[in-house]
Design a protein around this nucleic acid. Structure first.
Length: 300
DNA sequence: AACTGGGGCAACCGCTAGTAT
DNA sequence: GATACTAGCGGTTGCCCCAGT
């Protein structure tokens, strides 16, 4: 737990996990004298800790009014709602959740709620539907470690790219049509996230090009194309990701604002085209699945 | 049964804002 | 106004636990 497990400090101060004895000393001192000056407290209380460490231990763990245990669904909703309004201002969020500390809320957000939103196709930073490829692609700087959760959308896209590259569909194209003009159709206005899966069935289920949905241009409009097969496949994948739509975005935002998160998750998960993969558990196993799938397909 | 990898979370670090001198 | 000190905040780290192999 925590950093700097070593107890041997050049300044003579102990770091790392607190012992029950240290906790008791701190509790006893504060119960007798109140919080007062944190810099002086450790010396007066007989603790070999810095004041900062004492303050954190008290405010995050020992304070008598701290509520321990799991967050309730109500608290979850409150946190998500407040985060959409306040951002990463954990102390401000904690101030509205009696008995919860900023540290606890921050940890809960990073370990549970962020994943939950990502799985639902919602950018946890903006609380909006993930709508473009730049979302996952622009996140980690080159030298920073990848965050698999924030790159869920990227992973999903990669998975589907592999599907296309390995599919009968692709090989049938290699031997057949060079252009895709025959798939033109006319739909006015941008597609909504709920419309896209209807127009773009799961790639897995499409074995012939006759199943192909219409192609969308950069603005999300359906139009004609003379893309190469590769371009077409990639464009289709792009369109298979949650497409922004004023109508549906408003719907989702309303759900958030109305704290109807369960419905929001149901809605996003109900999108068969992208919801299925969104439902996948995030993490390293996803990469394994993707690679396994790719290997299997390529070995056929 | 032993090993391994990932998740959870307590604790630390660095920075900033506020206050005192 | 400049400096020093303190408290608070958000980001990050790394140990422990446990599920999966």
């Amino acid at each position: 737990m925590g950093r700097s497990p070593s107890n041997s400090q050049s300044d003579g101060l102990k770091r790392g996990p607190w012992t029950p004895e240290e906790d008791q000393k701190l509790i006893d001192y504060i119960q007798k004298h109140g919080q007062g000056n944190w810099q002086l407290l450790p010396r007066k209380a007989g603790l070999k800790r810095c004041g900062k460490s004492c303050r954190l231990r008290w405010t995050n763990y020992l304070r008598p009014d701290i509520k321990r245990g799991n967050f309730t669904p109500q608290e979850e909703q409150t946190i998500i709602h407040l985060h959409s309004a306040l951002g990463n201002r954990w102390s401000a969020i904690a101030a509205r959740l009696p008995g919860r500390t900023d540290n606890e809320i921050k940890n809960f957000w990073n370990t549970h709620l962020r994943k939950k939103l990502l799985r639902s196709g919602i950018d946890p930073r903006t609380h909006q539907l993930i709508t473009d490829l730049s979302f996952p692609l622009n996140l980690p700087p080159v030298n920073s470690p990848m965050n698999p959760l924030e790159n869920l959308a990227k992973i999903r896209l990669l998975s589907q790219i592999l599907h296309v590259l390995n599919s009968n569909l692709f090989s049938s194209f290699l031997s057949g049509a060079e252009t895709l003009n025959q798939f033109d159709c006319h739909v006015s206005g941008p597609l909504t996230p709920l419309q896209v899966p209807a127009l773009v069935p799961n790639l897995e289920s499409m074995n012939t090009h006759s199943d192909f949905p219409p192609v969308l241009d950069d603005s999300g409009m359906i139009g004609s194309t003379s893309d190469s097969i590769e371009e077409y496949s990639l464009r289709r994948l792009v369109q298979a990701t949650p497409e922004i739509s004023s109508g549906n975005l408003v719907h989702s935002v309303n759900l958030v604002e109305n704290q109807d998160y369960d419905q929001l998750f149901v809605d996003s998960g109900a999108c068969s085209g992208w919801g299925t993969a969104v439902d996948d558990e995030a993490g390293g196993s996803l990469w394994k699945d993707i690679l396994d799938e790719s290997f299997l397909a390529s070995s056929l």
